[in-house]
Design a protein around this nucleic acid. Structure first.
Lengths: 276, 276
DNA sequence: TTAGGGTTTGTAATAAAACTACACAATGAA
DNA sequence: TTCATTGTGTAGTTTTATTACAAACCCTAA
């Protein structure tokens, strides 16, 4: 629509051109304005605005506004923008959400199907799962625990590194570790994984590509995200980790066939009803 | 917007529900209709249609139509698809990520700037924060705690409803509660908030539009998401809640000026290095 | 240059849509 | 049952969009 206005502009009458300029100058406010407001802003009369709409193949002003609104909604995908002290809270929210969306899109484009299949296979051949994550990643580990313990095998999350060490030492070859870390460079988690592997447990890591943690695990589900703009701890990678673990859990569930899916749906409804 | 309508439907009055049904049944024609036409199709009076729009946080019918139109325009980029047992893990991952992305886009389009400003003001005027969430929302509460305790005021998260009750009873007028719940209908969280308000604490809720929890809090930061396709507990609303709380925390931080932002950046680097 | 055709634009009136105020009806608690 | 509260519709008001028409403009040709 905006393109259409620009293209049609030359063939418009003079005062209609003024309308075109006013709309192009600030399309966002145009969709919220009445004919009256636009007429004033363009310095023309109200019927001129209607004639402008008709020139653009719209039956009236309302339809024009609707088409323009839909156009604006579609424009511009999502990208990072740093927040500044001058942003209103609405602008701020949009920037942060755009960033979060952009990072999920990035993850979507980076999925390693092979790793995912391997990870699913590892879950299927294990008898229990332990999830390790500290700091921000502890939250992700707990969230994943909620999913995995419904899949039929014991699942437990530890966030304290000392307890992780102790737990890892008690694992055996039937245990599966899921180690979560944004950077994959924290000495605590590396030590924990080392101990776990010494106990012959399998290790899936959810972390950054080619990080030490990724390299020392059997399968790495990588989550790489542009974190520069995060003020707090990395929210975006947290979101990404949660989604990737959801993918893993759903992947396992789907392999279990319709029966398992139904059971999970039931479980979900029961829990939703009470808790969420 | 459609998700918002679905989420709010239960809390609407009977004849408003008829409007909701009519809109959901054929949203495409709804955006082209006048109040009159929609009123007839839903079998209600015209003011009821307007009241329906207002219930959805729109200032009037026009704004409602505009938002709905934009919503419809945006759909189709990323959209929900149910997973099936035949999906390869790659397809599965794409479907789930698309769904997650779509839900964040929805949230982005629903930001209530006014509520956000109020929430920021509430934080600024409180002396400490308590975060309450159970089940899946407990994870979100913990995540938010990590952010808020860096902002300079004590912040603590409780996930056990009994402890929440006890904690809420001990609050005073300087305390701020952030209550997190997907449905906003769990009796536990409602009871907790009731106690908190009796203690004269302020309450921000992160929950579904017009849910009982939203209605019984001072400010509601609404997160409405289409959860039909989730196999496990609502992942998407979890993501949304986390992002919304991130927006709130960043909003507070930004109001603190450049000095605060620098400090947070420092804190972040220190913690990243060690933990994440 | 100016009279007359068409074209462009605005004014004012009309129609339609959105919205408000209020009153009646339904519902639920005392 | 009565009273209070909530919900819903009717009728009127305001705002917005649209139409009809006339003034202004511009070009061409006498």
């Amino acid at each position: 629509m905006l393109a259409k206005i620009k293209a049609a502009k030359e063939s418009l009458r003079n005062s209609e051109k003024k309308v075109a300029d006013a709309v192009i100058a600030d399309p966002d406010s145009a969709v919220q304005s009445s004919i009256h407001a636009i007429a004033i802003r363009a310095g023309v009369s109200e019927p001129t605005v209607i004639r402008f709409c008709r020139a653009l193949d719209c039956v009236g002003f309302q339809q024009f506004k609707l088409k323009l609104a839909q156009d604006l909604a579609r424009r511009g995908t999502f990208f990072y923008q740093d927040v500044t002290a001058e942003d209103t809270s609405g602008v701020l929210a949009n920037k942060l959400l755009d960033g979060a969306i952009a990072s999920l899109v990035q993850i979507r484009n980076q999925i390693n199907e092979e790793a995912l299949d391997k990870a699913i296979a590892l879950y299927e051949s294990c008898s229990r799962v332990e999830l390790y994550g500290s700091g921000g990643s502890a939250v992700v580990a707990e969230d994943a625990q909620l999913k995995f313990f419904r899949l039929g095998k014991p699942a437990i999350a530890y966030s304290d590194p000392h307890i992780q060490h102790a737990a890892a030492a008690l694992l055996d070859r039937d245990a599966l570790v899921i180690a979560i870390s944004h950077s994959g460079r924290s000495s605590d988690i590396l030590k924990t994984v080392e101990i776990a592997r010494a106990s012959r447990a399998k290790v899936i890591s959810v972390t950054a590509t080619r990080s030490p943690l990724a390299q020392s695990s059997d399968v790495a589900l990588t989550v790489d995200v542009n974190e520069d703009s995060d003020i707090f701890s990395p929210v975006k990678s947290r979101l990404g980790q949660m989604v990737v673990l959801d993918v893993l859990a759903v992947g396992v569930a789907v392999r279990g066939g319709d029966h398992m899916l139904e059971q999970l749906a039931k479980a979900r409804r029961a829990i939703d009803f009470k808790f969420v």
